[in-house]
Design a binder for these strands. Sequence first.
DNA 1: CGAGCAGTTGATGCCCGTCAACGCACGTGG
DNA 2: CCACGTGCGTTGACGGGCATCAACTGCTCG
Lengths: 230, 230
Amino acid sequence: MYAQGSIDSAASAPRQQQAKFWDAPYVKDAETDLNALGLCQRFARHGEIHAQGEPADKLYKVLTGAVRTAQLLADGRRQIGGFYLPGEVFGLADGEPHGFTAEALAPTTLLVLRRDTLISRAARDPKLSRDLWQLTTAQLARTERHLMVLGRKTALERVACFLLDLSARGGDNDDIVLPMCRQDIADYLGLTIETVSRMMTRLEQMGLIALPSSRRVRLCDADALRDLEE
Amino acid sequence: MYAQGSIDSAASAPRQQQAKFWDAPYVKDAETDLNALGLCQRFARHGEIHAQGEPADKLYKVLTGAVRTAQLLADGRRQIGGFYLPGEVFGLADGEPHGFTAEALAPTTLLVLRRDTLISRAARDPKLSRDLWQLTTAQLARTERHLMVLGRKTALERVACFLLDLSARGGDNDDIVLPMCRQDIADYLGLTIETVSRMMTRLEQMGLIALPSSRRVRLCDADALRDLEE
DNA sequence: CGAGCAGTTGATGCCCGTCAACGCACGTGG
DNA sequence: CCACGTGCGTTGACGGGCATCAACTGCTCG
């Protein structure tokens, strides 16, 4: 189904002086030291990384590409848990089995790490252990912030939050290329594609963003967007 | 403001043969071994445990009572992140500073643990380290499940989920005593008090629950509630 | 060129929010 | 004892924000 790359394929980045086993999320550098603990795998666009209901025995770090995690109800309703960009780690939640599927949004390479390998290694390596915990508490903080978006914010505010979040993660660049379609955004924000589309054009009419194409967004007035965020 | 109890005040539970430093969440027994790592504190009803914006340098384990964590927007909108019952741990999210306040729903005793104490202790104690991580991944899984509730479920489904969750955490008892008011439930579920109230009476009219009083709920048909959950 | 997918825009409707009135339990003070 | 105030919850009338349904456009690829 998908090619399994060698460890070497991810080991091309230059070694750093003060190596961390785990990057902070939103840091783009793929640390080479992790390779001893995991395998590099490639996934095609829309390739399934793991399914809802499978044992949650692995962690994943995005090297290139992008990933979405999603939860499905029987009647087809979908909630996207998050999007993951290069340098970010997902699969931290311990469902046993998974409550979420994970799929590649684009051709993607992942570093795949077995949970039990990490656990036994962490028992001998306090720094790894601490980094794993830190990574998880940071993910938890981000997920809790998203609760406010889904529970209490208006459609316009949700879209503004989403764009600002993506911008910050993309290195504070005001030009964003969206790796996901409108349906994914809608399912992430608890809206419909139509509403997402309408809010995008509303933001454009307000002069806060520009839409050179449907997948490209330029933040023209990030401060005004932050005001919308509340 | 609030009385600071001695370590002993929480050490009255009988010692267990196979002691775990951390209970799994939803386990009610207050483990005595943790007392060496934290202090016992009491809080009055509606007492503030920590504020939004404070440094997130502590963890808390509920011994008696109940706690809510909440996030506020400037205009007063509120999202409750979770409710915590005896045996459960909160404060795991690493905001630095806190994105959430924590308040006692009722007279409450907590075991308060300094984060840096735990970290340095965990460096020498792989089991503690592993337990801390496990606790956090479990909390993350629960929070991600709540995303689906807030993003995609109807008002009736949200209330059904909430009642089933409380019932499971209360030891699978079909008689629930709600430690929180309607406003708290509403802010947890992303609804208004009126809608919560209407959904409660609707569930009652459907014969799925009984409401002997506003704070007491009996699940008459838990299976039908689970069907509503989807 | 036509099929198909992704996205936008418009018309309509409904779920839930808003606003308001009311019931009930409880406490306080005359 | 009752009058009164307060907090909490319920119920009803009404309206709005977003979902739903549908038509249309632009783009890509066979």
